[in-house]
Design a binder for these strands. Sequence first.
DNA 1: CTTGAAAGAAGACCGCG
DNA 2: CGCGGTCTTCTTTCAAG
Lengths: 152, 152
Amino acid sequence: MIETDETDRAILRALVDNADASAGEIGRALGLSQPAAWRRIRRLREAGVIRGTRLDLDAEKLGFGVTVFLGVKLGTKGQASLGDFERAVSAIPEVQTVEHILGMYDYRLRVVARDLPDFERVLRRRIMTLPGVASLDANVLLSEERRPGPIG
Amino acid sequence: MIETDETDRAILRALVDNADASAGEIGRALGLSQPAAWRRIRRLREAGVIRGTRLDLDAEKLGFGVTVFLGVKLGTKGQASLGDFERAVSAIPEVQTVEHILGMYDYRLRVVARDLPDFERVLRRRIMTLPGVASLDANVLLSEERRPGPIG
DNA sequence: CTTGAAAGAAGACCGCG
DNA sequence: CGCGGTCTTCTTTCAAG
Protein backbone atom coordinates (compact mmCIF):
# COMPACT_ATOMS: atom_id res chain seq x y z
CA MET A 1 0.00 0.00 0.00
CA ILE A 2 1.32 3.38 -1.08
CA GLU A 3 0.73 6.82 0.39
CA THR A 4 -1.65 8.91 -1.67
CA ASP A 5 -3.04 12.27 -0.64
CA GLU A 6 -6.32 13.74 -1.78
CA THR A 7 -4.66 15.44 -4.76
CA ASP A 8 -3.23 12.14 -5.96
CA ARG A 9 -6.64 10.56 -5.68
CA ALA A 10 -8.22 13.42 -7.63
CA ILE A 11 -5.60 12.90 -10.33
CA LEU A 12 -6.37 9.19 -10.46
CA ARG A 13 -10.09 9.86 -10.67
CA ALA A 14 -9.51 12.29 -13.53
CA LEU A 15 -7.29 9.81 -15.35
CA VAL A 16 -9.67 6.90 -14.85
CA ASP A 17 -12.34 9.13 -16.31
CA ASN A 18 -10.12 9.97 -19.28
CA ALA A 19 -6.87 8.10 -19.62
CA ASP A 20 -5.87 10.26 -22.61
CA ALA A 21 -5.93 13.51 -20.68
CA SER A 22 -2.66 15.44 -20.80
CA ALA A 23 -0.85 16.57 -17.67
CA GLY A 24 -1.89 20.11 -18.56
CA GLU A 25 -5.58 19.22 -18.65
CA ILE A 26 -5.35 17.38 -15.36
CA GLY A 27 -3.56 20.30 -13.76
CA ARG A 28 -6.09 22.80 -15.05
CA ALA A 29 -8.96 20.75 -13.64
CA LEU A 30 -7.32 20.62 -10.21
CA GLY A 31 -5.65 24.01 -9.99
CA LEU A 32 -2.09 22.72 -10.48
CA SER A 33 0.54 23.80 -12.95
CA GLN A 34 1.29 21.45 -15.81
CA PRO A 35 4.70 20.30 -14.47
CA ALA A 36 3.30 19.80 -10.96
CA ALA A 37 0.55 17.55 -12.29
CA TRP A 38 3.03 15.82 -14.58
CA ARG A 39 5.44 15.08 -11.69
CA ARG A 40 2.65 13.62 -9.57
CA ILE A 41 1.52 11.39 -12.44
CA ARG A 42 5.09 10.21 -12.98
CA ARG A 43 5.43 9.50 -9.27
CA LEU A 44 2.22 7.44 -9.32
CA ARG A 45 3.57 5.48 -12.28
CA GLU A 46 6.91 4.87 -10.61
CA ALA A 47 5.22 3.76 -7.42
CA GLY A 48 3.27 1.23 -9.47
CA VAL A 49 -0.12 2.65 -8.47
CA ILE A 50 -0.62 3.34 -12.17
CA ARG A 51 0.47 0.08 -13.73
CA GLY A 52 0.04 1.43 -17.24
CA THR A 53 -2.62 2.17 -19.76
CA ARG A 54 -4.20 -0.45 -21.97
CA LEU A 55 -6.18 -0.39 -25.16
CA ASP A 56 -9.87 -1.18 -24.93
CA LEU A 57 -10.82 -3.08 -28.08
CA ASP A 58 -14.31 -4.03 -29.20
CA ALA A 59 -13.93 -7.77 -29.74
CA GLU A 60 -17.25 -7.96 -31.54
CA LYS A 61 -16.18 -5.42 -34.15
CA LEU A 62 -13.08 -7.54 -34.74
CA GLY A 63 -15.23 -10.55 -35.47
CA PHE A 64 -15.09 -12.19 -32.05
CA GLY A 65 -18.75 -12.22 -31.15
CA VAL A 66 -18.65 -14.89 -28.46
CA THR A 67 -17.17 -14.52 -24.98
CA VAL A 68 -17.40 -17.41 -22.54
CA PHE A 69 -16.29 -17.69 -18.94
CA LEU A 70 -15.03 -21.12 -17.99
CA GLY A 71 -14.85 -22.26 -14.39
CA VAL A 72 -12.12 -24.87 -14.14
CA LYS A 73 -11.60 -27.39 -11.36
CA LEU A 74 -8.34 -29.29 -11.36
CA GLY A 75 -8.10 -32.94 -10.45
CA THR A 76 -4.59 -33.19 -9.05
CA LYS A 77 -3.58 -30.15 -7.04
CA GLY A 78 0.10 -30.26 -6.35
CA GLN A 79 1.95 -27.02 -7.01
CA ALA A 80 3.38 -28.63 -10.13
CA SER A 81 -0.16 -29.04 -11.47
CA LEU A 82 -0.85 -25.35 -11.08
CA GLY A 83 2.31 -24.41 -12.94
CA ASP A 84 1.63 -26.93 -15.70
CA PHE A 85 -1.90 -25.70 -16.12
CA GLU A 86 -0.92 -22.04 -16.16
CA ARG A 87 1.85 -22.61 -18.68
CA ALA A 88 -0.41 -24.60 -20.99
CA VAL A 89 -3.26 -22.12 -20.77
CA SER A 90 -0.93 -19.23 -21.55
CA ALA A 91 -0.27 -20.74 -24.96
CA ILE A 92 -3.94 -20.46 -26.03
CA PRO A 93 -4.44 -17.13 -27.82
CA GLU A 94 -8.21 -17.21 -27.36
CA VAL A 95 -7.79 -17.00 -23.57
CA GLN A 96 -7.89 -13.35 -22.53
CA THR A 97 -7.79 -13.70 -18.77
CA VAL A 98 -6.56 -16.36 -16.38
CA GLU A 99 -7.76 -15.90 -12.83
CA HIS A 100 -6.47 -18.16 -10.10
CA ILE A 101 -9.23 -18.23 -7.53
CA LEU A 102 -10.25 -19.80 -4.24
CA GLY A 103 -13.70 -21.28 -3.91
CA MET A 104 -15.87 -23.48 -6.04
CA TYR A 105 -13.33 -23.43 -8.90
CA ASP A 106 -9.57 -23.28 -9.13
CA TYR A 107 -9.36 -21.09 -12.23
CA ARG A 108 -11.62 -18.90 -14.22
CA LEU A 109 -10.83 -18.29 -17.89
CA ARG A 110 -12.20 -15.62 -20.18
CA VAL A 111 -12.27 -17.08 -23.68
CA VAL A 112 -13.26 -15.34 -26.92
CA ALA A 113 -14.23 -16.98 -30.21
CA ARG A 114 -15.66 -15.88 -33.55
CA ASP A 115 -18.92 -17.80 -33.07
CA LEU A 116 -20.23 -20.91 -31.38
CA PRO A 117 -18.69 -23.41 -33.84
CA ASP A 118 -15.38 -21.64 -33.36
CA PHE A 119 -15.86 -21.81 -29.62
CA GLU A 120 -16.51 -25.53 -29.85
CA ARG A 121 -13.22 -25.93 -31.70
CA VAL A 122 -11.35 -24.01 -28.99
CA LEU A 123 -13.07 -25.99 -26.27
CA ARG A 124 -12.40 -29.40 -27.78
CA ARG A 125 -8.94 -28.89 -29.19
CA ARG A 126 -7.48 -26.46 -26.67
CA ILE A 127 -9.29 -26.34 -23.36
CA MET A 128 -10.17 -30.02 -22.98
CA THR A 129 -6.58 -31.00 -23.66
CA LEU A 130 -5.27 -28.88 -20.77
CA PRO A 131 -3.43 -30.91 -18.12
CA GLY A 132 -5.24 -31.83 -14.93
CA VAL A 133 -8.71 -30.49 -15.69
CA ALA A 134 -11.30 -32.39 -13.67
CA SER A 135 -14.42 -30.40 -14.43
CA LEU A 136 -15.56 -27.42 -16.44
CA ASP A 137 -18.45 -25.03 -16.13
CA ALA A 138 -19.34 -22.49 -18.81
CA ASN A 139 -21.16 -19.16 -18.79
CA VAL A 140 -21.79 -17.19 -21.97
CA LEU A 141 -21.37 -13.43 -21.70
CA LEU A 142 -24.50 -11.52 -22.70
CA SER A 143 -23.44 -8.01 -21.73
CA GLU A 144 -20.93 -6.33 -19.49
CA GLU A 145 -20.53 -3.07 -17.67
CA ARG A 146 -17.16 -1.92 -16.37
CA ARG A 147 -17.12 0.73 -13.67
CA PRO A 148 -14.23 2.79 -12.28
CA GLY A 149 -14.18 1.13 -8.88
CA PRO A 150 -13.12 2.86 -5.66
CA ILE A 151 -9.94 4.96 -5.63
CA GLY A 152 -9.55 5.99 -2.03
CA MET B 1 -17.95 -6.55 -37.75
CA ILE B 2 -15.67 -3.99 -39.37
CA GLU B 3 -13.27 -4.36 -42.27
CA THR B 4 -9.64 -4.43 -41.13
CA ASP B 5 -6.70 -5.19 -43.38
CA GLU B 6 -3.39 -6.66 -42.27
CA THR B 7 -1.91 -3.20 -41.65
CA ASP B 8 -4.78 -2.29 -39.31
CA ARG B 9 -4.24 -5.50 -37.40
CA ALA B 10 -0.52 -4.84 -37.12
CA ILE B 11 -1.34 -1.39 -35.72
CA LEU B 12 -3.74 -2.91 -33.19
CA ARG B 13 -1.16 -5.47 -32.13
CA ALA B 14 1.42 -2.72 -31.65
CA LEU B 15 -1.02 -0.62 -29.63
CA VAL B 16 -2.15 -3.53 -27.47
CA ASP B 17 1.50 -4.13 -26.77
CA ASN B 18 2.01 -0.47 -25.85
CA ALA B 19 -1.07 1.74 -25.65
CA ASP B 20 1.12 4.82 -25.07
CA ALA B 21 2.98 4.50 -28.36
CA SER B 22 2.81 7.60 -30.53
CA ALA B 23 1.55 7.52 -34.10
CA GLY B 24 5.12 8.19 -35.18
CA GLU B 25 6.47 5.16 -33.31
CA ILE B 26 3.76 2.93 -34.73
CA GLY B 27 4.44 4.19 -38.21
CA ARG B 28 8.18 3.68 -37.84
CA ALA B 29 7.63 0.10 -36.70
CA LEU B 30 5.47 -0.67 -39.71
CA GLY B 31 7.08 1.42 -42.43
CA LEU B 32 4.40 4.08 -42.52
CA SER B 33 4.68 7.84 -42.18
CA GLN B 34 3.42 9.47 -38.98
CA PRO B 35 0.27 10.96 -40.57
CA ALA B 36 -0.60 7.69 -42.35
CA ALA B 37 -0.39 5.76 -39.07
CA TRP B 38 -2.26 8.52 -37.27
CA ARG B 39 -5.09 8.49 -39.83
CA ARG B 40 -5.50 4.73 -39.54
CA ILE B 41 -5.58 4.92 -35.75
CA ARG B 42 -8.21 7.64 -35.91
CA ARG B 43 -10.24 5.57 -38.35
CA LEU B 44 -10.10 2.57 -36.00
CA ARG B 45 -11.26 4.80 -33.15
CA GLU B 46 -14.12 6.24 -35.18
CA ALA B 47 -15.20 2.78 -36.30
CA GLY B 48 -15.36 1.78 -32.63
CA VAL B 49 -12.81 -1.00 -33.02
CA ILE B 50 -10.69 0.93 -30.53
CA ARG B 51 -13.21 1.83 -27.86
CA GLY B 52 -10.69 3.90 -25.95
CA THR B 53 -7.78 3.52 -23.62
CA ARG B 54 -8.18 2.94 -19.93
CA LEU B 55 -5.94 3.30 -16.93
CA ASP B 56 -4.66 0.12 -15.34
CA LEU B 57 -4.50 0.74 -11.59
CA ASP B 58 -2.97 -1.53 -8.99
CA ALA B 59 -5.86 -1.92 -6.55
CA GLU B 60 -3.60 -3.46 -3.94
CA LYS B 61 -1.31 -0.41 -3.90
CA LEU B 62 -4.39 1.74 -3.32
CA GLY B 63 -5.29 -0.28 -0.26
CA PHE B 64 -7.83 -2.61 -1.87
CA GLY B 65 -6.19 -5.94 -1.21
CA VAL B 66 -9.23 -8.15 -1.62
CA THR B 67 -10.96 -8.96 -4.90
CA VAL B 68 -13.90 -11.34 -4.90
CA PHE B 69 -16.00 -12.68 -7.74
CA LEU B 70 -19.62 -13.19 -6.88
CA GLY B 71 -21.86 -15.47 -8.89
CA VAL B 72 -25.43 -14.23 -8.52
CA LYS B 73 -28.60 -16.15 -9.24
CA LEU B 74 -31.82 -14.16 -9.28
CA GLY B 75 -35.08 -15.48 -7.88
CA THR B 76 -37.63 -13.68 -10.00
CA LYS B 77 -36.57 -13.30 -13.61
CA GLY B 78 -38.91 -10.90 -15.34
CA GLN B 79 -37.17 -8.26 -17.42
CA ALA B 80 -38.07 -5.75 -14.72
CA SER B 81 -36.00 -7.78 -12.24
CA LEU B 82 -32.94 -7.57 -14.45
CA GLY B 83 -33.26 -3.80 -14.77
CA ASP B 84 -33.87 -3.37 -11.03
CA PHE B 85 -30.87 -5.50 -10.20
CA GLU B 86 -28.58 -3.74 -12.66
CA ARG B 87 -29.62 -0.30 -11.48
CA ALA B 88 -29.11 -1.18 -7.84
CA VAL B 89 -25.75 -2.84 -8.43
CA SER B 90 -24.52 0.18 -10.39
CA ALA B 91 -24.81 2.28 -7.27
CA ILE B 92 -22.26 0.18 -5.35
CA PRO B 93 -18.81 1.73 -5.83
CA GLU B 94 -16.99 -1.44 -4.80
CA VAL B 95 -18.39 -3.29 -7.81
CA GLN B 96 -15.91 -3.01 -10.66
CA THR B 97 -17.58 -5.23 -13.22
CA VAL B 98 -21.13 -6.40 -13.85
CA GLU B 99 -21.40 -9.28 -16.26
CA HIS B 100 -24.77 -10.50 -17.40
CA ILE B 101 -24.25 -14.13 -18.25
CA LEU B 102 -26.06 -17.25 -19.35
CA GLY B 103 -25.45 -20.48 -17.51
CA MET B 104 -25.21 -21.48 -13.90
CA TYR B 105 -25.53 -17.85 -12.74
CA ASP B 106 -27.36 -14.80 -14.00
CA TYR B 107 -24.70 -12.25 -13.08
CA ARG B 108 -21.11 -12.22 -12.13
CA LEU B 109 -19.76 -9.29 -10.10
CA ARG B 110 -16.18 -8.30 -9.51
CA VAL B 111 -16.02 -6.67 -6.09
CA VAL B 112 -13.01 -5.06 -4.40
CA ALA B 113 -12.58 -4.31 -0.70
CA ARG B 114 -9.80 -3.15 1.61
CA ASP B 115 -9.68 -6.42 3.54
CA LEU B 116 -11.95 -9.24 4.60
CA PRO B 117 -13.82 -7.29 7.30
CA ASP B 118 -14.41 -4.57 4.75
CA PHE B 119 -15.61 -7.17 2.29
CA GLU B 120 -18.02 -8.52 4.87
CA ARG B 121 -19.43 -5.03 5.28
CA VAL B 122 -19.93 -4.68 1.51
CA LEU B 123 -21.48 -8.13 1.32
CA ARG B 124 -23.93 -7.63 4.16
CA ARG B 125 -24.88 -4.01 3.66
CA ARG B 126 -24.70 -3.75 -0.13
CA ILE B 127 -24.81 -7.05 -1.93
CA MET B 128 -27.29 -8.91 0.25
CA THR B 129 -29.73 -6.04 0.04
CA LEU B 130 -29.83 -6.17 -3.77
CA PRO B 131 -33.30 -6.86 -5.15
CA GLY B 132 -34.17 -10.37 -6.30
CA VAL B 133 -31.01 -12.22 -5.30
CA ALA B 134 -31.78 -15.89 -4.73
CA SER B 135 -28.31 -17.30 -4.24
CA LEU B 136 -24.69 -16.19 -4.11
CA ASP B 137 -21.43 -17.94 -4.71
CA ALA B 138 -18.07 -16.36 -3.96
CA ASN B 139 -14.54 -16.89 -5.27
CA VAL B 140 -11.58 -14.97 -3.88
CA LEU B 141 -9.02 -13.81 -6.44
CA LEU B 142 -5.51 -15.10 -5.74
CA SER B 143 -3.75 -13.92 -8.88
CA GLU B 144 -4.61 -12.89 -12.37
CA GLU B 145 -2.97 -12.78 -15.76
CA ARG B 146 -4.35 -10.67 -18.58
CA ARG B 147 -3.33 -11.52 -22.13
CA PRO B 148 -3.77 -9.58 -25.36
CA GLY B 149 -6.30 -11.97 -26.89
CA PRO B 150 -6.69 -12.58 -30.62
CA ILE B 151 -6.81 -9.60 -33.02
CA GLY B 152 -7.55 -11.13 -36.39
C1' DC C 1 6.87 28.14 -11.00
C1' DT C 2 8.81 29.50 -15.50
C1' DT C 3 11.35 28.55 -19.56
C1' DG C 4 12.83 26.12 -23.63
C1' DA C 5 14.12 22.43 -26.65
C1' DA C 6 12.45 18.15 -28.69
C1' DA C 7 8.62 15.32 -29.98
C1' DG C 8 3.99 14.34 -31.05
C1' DA C 9 -0.66 15.60 -32.92
C1' DA C 10 -3.30 16.89 -36.54
C1' DG C 11 -4.45 19.63 -40.38
C1' DA C 12 -3.69 21.20 -45.59
C1' DC C 13 -2.21 19.70 -49.84
C1' DC C 14 -0.26 16.73 -53.60
C1' DG C 15 0.36 12.31 -56.19
C1' DC C 16 -0.73 7.71 -57.24
C1' DG C 17 -3.67 3.37 -58.42
C1' DC D 1 -12.01 8.74 -54.27
C1' DG D 2 -9.08 5.44 -51.02
C1' DC D 3 -4.68 5.81 -49.22
C1' DG D 4 -0.02 7.15 -48.57
C1' DG D 5 3.74 10.89 -48.39
C1' DT D 6 5.53 15.62 -47.36
C1' DC D 7 5.21 19.99 -45.25
C1' DT D 8 3.53 22.87 -41.62
C1' DT D 9 1.59 24.49 -37.26
C1' DC D 10 0.21 23.97 -32.73
C1' DT D 11 0.32 21.46 -28.44
C1' DT D 12 2.52 18.57 -25.14
C1' DT D 13 6.26 16.58 -22.94
C1' DC D 14 9.92 16.74 -19.96
C1' DA D 15 14.23 18.44 -18.22
C1' DA D 16 16.67 22.44 -16.30
C1' DG D 17 16.91 26.87 -14.50
